[in-house]
Amino acid sequence: MHNAAVLSPTANMTGSETYRLSVLRDRLWRAALWFCGFIGFLLPVSIISYLVFEGIHRVSWSFLVDYPKGTPLGTQGGIWPAVEGSLALASIGLLVAFPLALGGGLYLSEYGRSQRFNETVRFLVECLAAVPSIIYGLFGYAFLVVFLKFGISLIAGGLVLALIMFPILLIAIQESLRSIDDAYREMGLSLGVTRFYLIRRVLLRKAWRGIVAGIVLAVGHAVGSAAPVLFTASIYFSKGGLGLDRPVMTLPTHLYNLVSEAISFDQAFGTALVLIAGLLIFNASATLLRRLGGGSAQ
């Protein structure tokens, strides 16, 4: 360029000393952030692989379906009653909580007409979703086990888990309904159908992915938590078989007992791995379902 020399200033594109310093600081900072990210990745990977590495030789088919054996009880054999108990507790919780949460979510997002009412209820529900599970355990013990005389039983534990799952499910259902474009509602209702018809034919079909995600979250939370079932549903050992009025073993409380009573760390590794693997597989299959399942994505 013939005129470049005239205009080219002394300042050039490489910058001054102070500038170079601040670029260096920026580099260091970015490196620090990469390091943070690396730690965030390393933690789950190393925890999971440690548990897999230490536990994999314990887990077998017979470990899953056998009963605890040995002296002291639990040093040998399997964990079937705990698997059974955890599944039963989570199922009861879901059976009770899901209809209530679905109804509640539908009411809040589709039927409720008062903004203030909806917001107040939502606020309450969000508060209660944050309440520590040990508090639910206290309540379950005082109200269900003692006051209603349910005793330490499957039904008491199931109801406590239902209470824990209810706010999680409700929030997930309401959010996934709320994220549906209002145009669907207007278009549907302008055809003269009832809201329920619209909900059944359109809204639930659009929202089911979010609802499934909520179920996964709630069930995962319920299966993994020991504090609320510790004094509402669980016992050290059971010979298996379920009854609503009988206590059960659960995976998390079994793991807790194995460790806190120092019964068998070997068995504990196996139990922890079964619990983790079960949760991960459950999560992954729900993700797969959401990805492959029919209906339109949101």
């Binding site: 470049a4 200033p9 594109m13 500038y19």
Partner: peptide
């Protein structure tokens, strides 16, 4: 792009200094 004869997309051009100017 040439800005006053300097290449904006040349190797070693710091985008932040371009933006400053």
């Amino acid at each position: 792009i040439h800005f006053k004869g300097e290449r904006l997309y040349g190797n070693g051009t710091d985008p932040r200094l371009v933006r400053k100017r």
